[in-house]
Design a protein around this nucleic acid. Structure first.
Lengths: 230, 230
DNA sequence: TGTAATTATAAGGTTAGCTTAAGGTTAAGA
DNA sequence: TCTTAACCTTAAGCTAACCTTATAATTACA
C-alpha cells in the first residue's frame, strides 16, 4: 500500500540533529536528504523536488527565513510543504515564518516520536489536498467516488451533496455493485427492523439518487428491488 | 492507509476469558497478545508495546492495580490505554483504578459485543488524540494559525481567544481538515467516554467557533457531525 | 390491452440543528 | 477565604433541511 515513499529535505547546521531526525524519518520509510545551510538547501530542493522541507531558522551562510522566501518563489516547489524548526517561545519568529510562506512550525527540543507523527500528518494532508480519492475510506466506481470519512460523493470530480438517507442508500447499493437489493432488505438496513415507512418512500429516494447521478446507474427490477450498475 | 492493525494485550488468569475475548477481538482484526498475571503482563507490554491493555483486577502473583501502576511509569507505555476488567458494583475498585492511572474500566460479566465496541471507541479516541498531539508546534491552515504549544490562535495576524473547550474542539476539527467528525466521536474525544453532557452542548461550542472564525469554515453534516474546511 | 408496480411532483410533517439567554461551575485574584 | 469573572452547560423556541406521504401519470409485463 505504501507504493510511494515521500521525499523529505532536512536542513540544519547541527550534524547531530540531521543524524537523529534523519534516522527516525528513514525508519518510517521516507527518503531523506540533508543540507547544512540555506544555500545548499535551495540547490538540493531544486534537484530533488521534495514533498516536505524541514528548515532550521538559525543557520550560517543563509538562514531559514531567507531560504524559505526564495524557495517559495520557485515554481517547482509550489506544492512542497515547508516547516520551520525553532527554539520554543520565540513568538515573533513564528509569525515571521508564516509571513515568508511556511506552512507549519515545529519547536525544539525535538521529540522524535512527535516529529514523526507530525510529518505523517502533514504529508497525509498534502495527499488529501492533491488527490481527493486515493484516501482511506473511499470507494471508486468508475466516475463515482464515495468518501465515507468525509461523507462526500464526487462524480467526475464534481462534488454532489447527498443528505443522510440518500447517502446511506447509495452506500448500500454501491457496496455490492450488480447485486439486487430487495426492497425489504433496503428497508431493514437503512430504516431498521422496527421502523415502518410507506412503500413509496424508497422510490422517492431512489429518484433523488438518479436525479443526481444521471440516469442509468441504478436499475429497477420490477417486483423485487434495485441494483447499482456502473 | 489503514493497514495498521492495533495491538491489544489481554490480561486475565482465567483461560476461558482469554479465549473468548481474544477470539472476538481477533475477529475484528486486532493483534491480540495474552498474559495470565501482572508480572507476565509487564514483560509482554514492554516487548510488544500494545496500543491497549485490558487488565483484570483480581489476579494471582501480581494483581491488576499493581501492574497498572508499574506500567504507567514506563515511558514506552506512555501512550498506551489501560482499561480494567472488574466485577460489577465494586465501585471502590473503579475509583482505585483511576487512581493508579487507568483510562477506563469494563465490568464483568463480559458481553463480547459491548466489549468490542468499547475497544473500538477507545482506540479511535487514542488515534484522534495522537493526531492532535502531532500538531505540536503551530500549524497554518489558510488564514488560520494555531499554536498548540501556547494555546493561541491567529486569524489573519489577529489573535483570537479560545477558552479551553473551544480550543480543543477547534484542534480536533482542524487536525484532519475535510474529515467529518461524528457528534459521538467529538464527545468521546473532548469530553471523555464517561462524561455525559447534553446533546446541545456541542452546537453551542460550534457556534462560538463560527462566531470567531467567520462563518464558512465549519460545515454541518446534518444527522452526522461537523467538519472543518479550508 | 389491462393490471400492478414504479415514477414524478408537490405538499405536509418531523427532526436536527441554530440561536439566545440564563443558571451553574470553576478558576483566578484580592 | 471570599469575590468576581470567565467559562461551560442547559433549556426553550425557532428555522430550515430532510423525510414521508399522497396523488396522478407512466411504465413494464402478462
Amino acid at each position: 500500500m505504501k507504493e510511494y515513499s515521500a521525499k523529505i529535505l532536512l536542513v540544519d547546521d547541527e550534524p547531530d540533529i540531521l543524524e537523529i531526525v534523519g534516522y527516525n524519518l528513514k525508519n518510517e520509510g521516507y527518503q531523506v536528504f540533508t543540507a547544512a545551510n540555506g544555500d545548499e538547501a535551495i540547490k538540493k530542493a531544486k534537484k530533488k523536488k521534495p514533498d516536505l522541507i524541514i528548515l532550521d531558522v538559525m543557520m550560517p551562510v543563509m538562514d531559514g527565513m531567507e531560504a524559505c522566501e526564495k524557495m517559495r518563489k520557485m515554481p517547482e516547489l509550489e506544492h512542497t510543504i515547508i516547516t520551520f524548526l525553532t527554539a520554543r517561545s520565540e513568538d515573533y519568529s513564528m509569525i515571521a515564518g508564516f509571513d515568508v510562506g511556511a506552512d507549519d512550525y515545529i519547536t525544539k527540543p525535538i521529540k522524535p516520536r512527535v516529529l514523526v507523527s507530525k510529518v505523517k500528518s502533514l504529508l497525509r494532508r498534502k495527499l488529501q489536498v492533491e488527490e481527493i480519492a486515493a484516501n482511506s475510506g473511499s470507494t471508486k466506481l468508475g466516475d463515482l467516488v464515495i468518501d465515507h470519512d468525509q461523507y462526500k460523493v464526487f462524480l467526475r470530480k464534481e462534488e454532489l451533496v447527498f443528505p443522510r438517507k440518500e447517502f446511506e442508500l447509495l452506500s448500500l447499493l454501491t457496496s455490492q455493485p450488480g447485486k439486487v437489493f430487495k426492497r425489504e432488505e433496503i428497508l431493514e438496513t437503512i430504516w431498521g427492523v422496527d421502523v415502518v415507512v410507506g412503500g413509496r418512500t424508497i422510490d422517492v429516494h431512489i429518484r433523488k439518487l438518479r436525479e443526481k447521478l444521471g440516469d442509468d446507474s441504478i436499475n429497477t427490477i420490477k417486483g423485487v428491488g434495485y441494483k447499482y450498475v456502473k
